[in-house]
Design a protein around this nucleic acid. Structure first.
Lengths: 252, 252
DNA sequence: AATCGGATACTGGTCAAACCTTTTTATATG
DNA sequence: CATATAAAAAGGTTTGACCAGTATCCGATT
């Protein structure tokens, strides 16, 4: 639940939402602290705390004596432009995690292989349960592989990519849209990756990882196409209603 | 000037400094808010503001009723994680930029190829001048390739890697130590990469990029070995002086 | 003697009411 | 009309109090 324990958190979330919804557009000014305090039924210090958090997140700029100004498109996740599409992220992941898998194949320890196997079982067991646990198992699987490279830079890059996956609204929405599709093939692909690692075969590991992401990419494309079709249908329906002669004939 | 206008800013900076200096180690607890307020001669709300800013920056974790805990080395890729070695960074760059080059080979435009060619000339012309300009040309060359992928995520990752290269003290020092070595072979390697891109040959581009980084890696290893040897010699000399009988016989 | 439970001190969480400084604006004055 | 001045408005900071979790310690119980 987003209802954090600390009050300023809830104010922070409300303000972010209002900014996101265009209530307080970029370049514009937030209402005075006193007014916000009254509006949210909290004290002024609490509003200040929320504003300072927003400031630390580069969402607003505070000008003494003037007001709190909303910054334009500070849409950054982890210092990275959040305008990245799910396609771009997935392509990058395919390339980077493909190499990570290849490197991991030459470096991975028996303990790490065992850990991967355990995660694999989690994934299978929970594929019938809610997607939440399966999602976590998926992350652990990929993370373990990045860690098996023994290269902290690769691990850091992986974490950064996953962070964007989870926190960029556009990307997250796209992944959510396809998350439940074909659970079996997803498991199969992970098995394939694991097998390649077991045999410590870099080429096979890279290829298996590429296969995995190729399927995700295909699903993203298919989902995207479907979304576009739905959008066109919706607009068509709107147009039909707008331009229909019904209301005219009704008025006559 | 670090003397920020808002008081909480100066407290924030002081706290960051104290954390950086190990006064408040990761996992440890900050002194109580009231104590900090007294120590910095500010009010408690001001201290709270600084702590909330630290929290928003993922530097500390606040546990109600318990205390403010310092988080261990932020895993953020930006902001320079000093725990990454030059070896790890270079290996990661080899893998990631290798894939970037391969992708770029299939996507690059004629304009971008021309731009690369221009940068190449800069690199040749200035290889006799100071290393500064040559360094800049090198960055532009690699950056242009990452941009030629047409994938903003790959561009973001590249920028992140380069940022670490420039800002992590350990990494920067290691690169500085080898920057002047064999200028001709460096140019040759870049020419090889450019040629592969011109022919839009992904495999050749990847291989050329790998060669480039393999040489850097070799130089890093050689420089590292030399540094270790120097260190041993220094220690040996110190030991000789320390344990020599000179000062004893002088005193006699 | 060891353990469990509760009283108590400690820590962050929140609020209220002031007062200061800077910026903005409105107004009066030349 | 332009400028200077005063008033209003905004954020900046402090004080002091009280609340709500958390950790600690000490005594009662077993």
């Amino acid at each position: 639940m987003p209802s954090e324990k600390r009050l300023y958190r809830s104010v922070l979330i409300k303000l972010e939402k209002l900014i996101e919804e265009g209530e307080y557009p970029p370049g514009g000014r937030l209402p005075p602290e006193r007014e916000l305090a009254e509006r949210f039924s909290v004290s002024r210090p609490t509003v200040r705390e929320a504003i300072i958090a927003l400031e630390a997140l580069d969402r607003v700029e505070v000008k003494t004596g003037s007001g709190v100004y909303v910054l334009d498109t500070p849409k950054r996740v982890n210092g990275v432009d959040a305008s990245i599409s799910a396609f771009e992220l997935t392509e990058a992941r395919a390339l980077i995690e493909g190499e990570a898998a290849a490197l991991a194949a030459t470096m991975i320890s028996d303990e790490q292989l065992a850990a991967l196997e355990a995660i694999m079982h989690e994934m299978v067991d929970e594929s019938e349960d809610g997607e939440l646990l399966s999602e976590q198992a998926d992350q652990k699987f990929h993370q373990m592989i990045s860690e098996a490279t023994g290269n902290s830079m690769m691990i850091a890059v992986f974490n950064s990519l996953w962070h964007i996956r989870d926190n960029s609204p556009a990307v997250h929405a796209a992944y959510q849209a396809i998350c439940g599709m074909e659970p079996q093939s997803r498991v199969d692909e992970h098995v394939e990756i694991l097998d390649a690692l077991k045999q410590r075969d870099p080429k096979a590991a890279r290829e298996a990882m590429h296969n995995h992401f190729a399927r995700i990419l295909n699903k993203l494309i298919a989902a995207n196409e479907q979304a576009h079709i739905d959008e066109i249908r919706r607009k068509t329906r709107e147009s039909r209603e707008r331009f229909s002669l019904n209301h005219l004939s009704a008025g006559a």
